[in-house]
Amino acid sequence: MERTPRERGGSPESRASREPPLDPEERARALCLRLLTGTPRTRRQLADALRKRDIPEDVAEHVLARFEDVGLIDDRAFANAWVESRHHGRGLARRALARELRNRGVDAEQVSEAVGLLDAEQEETTARELLRRRLPGTRGLERAKRVRRLAGMLARKGYSEGLALRLVREALDEERAAGLDTAEEEPWLWDAE
């Protein structure tokens, strides 16, 4: 049986009015800790959250600097973990990862270092794996439509047009050689280099 607010010691509003209000620094610390509990965040993400809650800028700067000093905010570690997670989990290329990190407020030098952890060979291997998983779903479509869909999927994940088209052509050639492709051939797609 659920208890009424009166049985629980009053309404939430009356309990809040009995507690002294937190000073801006305590509010800032509490907000940052709450936000960092769910998922890692960048310094800028936390600064934006503090700004939205009307925490004075000098107080926010002090709290954020303290959180950096004790290691609760580390944009470099955030960027490295982000690249590792999003590349392996979603197959994103360096270009897409860099854009996401910049949007989260990571410093350009740290973005370069983090995406630099991926080399071209690793990126190509991931793109091939994405194609391997998506290729069967396009069987039976016209070759031109397959090329557009598969290259478009890779482009949305941040792969360059040249790499995407080359890998799609190779995958479709391998499929054709294995006798898995039943669509009519359109030679003009294979002649364009």
Rank of each mutant, 00 (worst) to 15 (best):
K145P: 09
R133E: 15
K145M: 12
T126D: 03
R143N: 13
A151C: 10
Y159C: 06
L165K: 03
V147K: 04
L141M: 12
R133H: 11
L150V: 13
S160H: 08
L135I: 08
Y159R: 10
L131V: 03
R143K: 12
G137D: 10
L167F: 00
L163T: 08
R156I: 10
K145V: 10
R166V: 14
L167V: 03
L150F: 05
G158R: 02
R156P: 10
L167Y: 06
L135A: 02
R149M: 12
T138M: 11
R134T: 04
A127R: 12
G158K: 00
A155K: 02
E161V: 02
G158M: 04
M153P: 09
R139I: 00
K157E: 07
L154C: 00
G158D: 04
G158L: 02
R148N: 14
S160R: 08
A151T: 05
E142A: 15
K145Y: 12
R148P: 10
T125K: 14
R149S: 14
R128P: 08
L135E: 11
S160E: 14
A127G: 03
M153H: 09
E142S: 15
G162W: 00
R132A: 13
A144T: 15
G162S: 01
L165M: 03
L131E: 06
R166K: 07
G140M: 00
T126G: 13
G137E: 08
L131A: 02
R132W: 09
S160L: 06
K145R: 14
G137S: 12
K145Q: 15
L141N: 10
Y159A: 07
E161F: 10
K157V: 05
A164N: 01
R139M: 11
G152D: 02
R134K: 15
V147T: 09
L154E: 03
P136R: 12
Y159G: 06
R156Q: 13
L167A: 04
G162I: 07
L150N: 02
G140Q: 01
A144V: 15
P136K: 04
L163V: 13
G152W: 08
L131F: 06
T138N: 15
E161A: 12
R139N: 11
G152R: 05
A155T: 15
A151L: 03
E129C: 06
R166M: 08
A144E: 07
E142C: 11
A151S: 02
A144I: 13
G162L: 04
L130C: 09
T138L: 11
T138H: 14
R146F: 01
M153Q: 12
L167R: 12
L131R: 04
T126A: 14
V147D: 03
E129H: 12
Y159L: 01
T138K: 13
G137M: 00
M153S: 15
R148H: 13
L135W: 00
R128Q: 12
L167P: 09
G137T: 11
G137Y: 06
A155L: 04
R146N: 11
R156L: 09
E129M: 01
A155I: 11
E129W: 06
T138E: 15
G152E: 00
R133S: 14
G140R: 06
R132Y: 02
G158P: 01
R132M: 11
L130S: 10
R128A: 12
L141G: 11
L167K: 04
R146P: 05
R148C: 14
